[in-house]
Nucleic acid binder design. Structure first.
Lengths: 164, 164
DNA sequence: CAAGATTGAGTTATCAATCTTA
DNA sequence: TAAGATTGATAACTCAATCTTG
């Protein structure tokens, strides 16, 4: 795909893109956490969980489904949901139709928390990302990001197979 | 810039791009960590520190400069460098020209560790990212990422100023 | 036994306070 | 006093082990 470049190492343009991507990966989460922590006493990950639930049917979702949406391990989610439940934002209950499944429901205080923090967070997203991009770049970002995510998901299935 | 969209909320295309970006932020670090932990008993962040030092003049750099390159806090870096020093990978010493500055030098075992783990890591980078993109997308990724990083750095300077 | 989820132990990150030197 | 860096306490994450249900 990249012509005749040596496959084991990165080309100059690849290296440049890699550095940018790594920098983005390290800085964007921190920047989002900063704003939410400062203004709403909320982790970006907690925000993501609240947002996922608010968009779900009946504001309820299973642990596994939330973990899929939020791109995290079930273990991490379980710890976080425990803290959120202790704060009264969500409520856990076993699924009536499948005893193995835990359903998480967004409670009123959690919805209130989300509503209160959403405008500031959206504003920060606009400041950090969308104000910097034109329509074309926005579409490009979606396409490129989606392609990479597909790779990550595919590799997660077969981590041991090394093509090198 | 986005025409007549309501500034407080995201448009459909913005929302789609945002979800992709968040997913990427959550998954890519984990994917890189997985490969390095499994194959080299190394965090991606530790790898980044080693790589930064290997590229520096005399394989030596100040804490502040490393933190800038690796996009992290000085505090986090200090803890990590302590662990790396305990493993014999790097060595700290006060700067002879400025007593406030700590210089970190990449030691032979650290260089060996980096050399041993680099091919596998580069391979994973290729698998996850570059194999999925054409030349044009690669360039686009650099441009877009750079634009966002500039915003993040600018906001980091003036976090309290909210334009909403 | 496998899927869904939880737990606890150990590790790493974050925040605020501190220390030293220019 | 501010820059550069470190430290310790607290909080969060990761991994492996475990538990329960289908």
């Amino acid at each position: 795909m990249k012509g005749t470049t040596e496959p084991k190492w990165l080309s100059e343009s690849e290296y440049a893109a890699w550095m940018v991507l790594i920098g983005l990966m390290h800085k964007l989460p921190g920047a989002l956490d900063s704003q939410l922590r400062r203004d709403a006493d909320l982790t970006h990950f907690e925000y993501a969980v609240l947002a996922t639930l608010s968009a779900a049917t009946n504001r309820t979702s299973s642990m596994t489904d939330i973990a899929t949406f939020a791109s995290c391990s079930l273990s991490r989610l379980s710890h976080v949901v425990s803290r959120m439940e202790a704060r009264g934002w969500v409520k856990r209950s076993p699924s009536p139709t499948n005893g193995r499944v835990t359903l998480v429901k967004l409670a009123a205080p959690g919805m209130k928390k989300l509503s209160a923090s959403a405008p500031g967070h959206v504003c920060e997203a606009r400041r950090l990302v969308f104000d910097a991009l034109c329509e074309e770049q926005l579409a490009s970002l979606s396409t490129i990001g989606t392609a990479i995510l597909q790779r990550i998901d595919a590799v997660a299935e077969q981590p041991e197979v090394s093509p090198c």
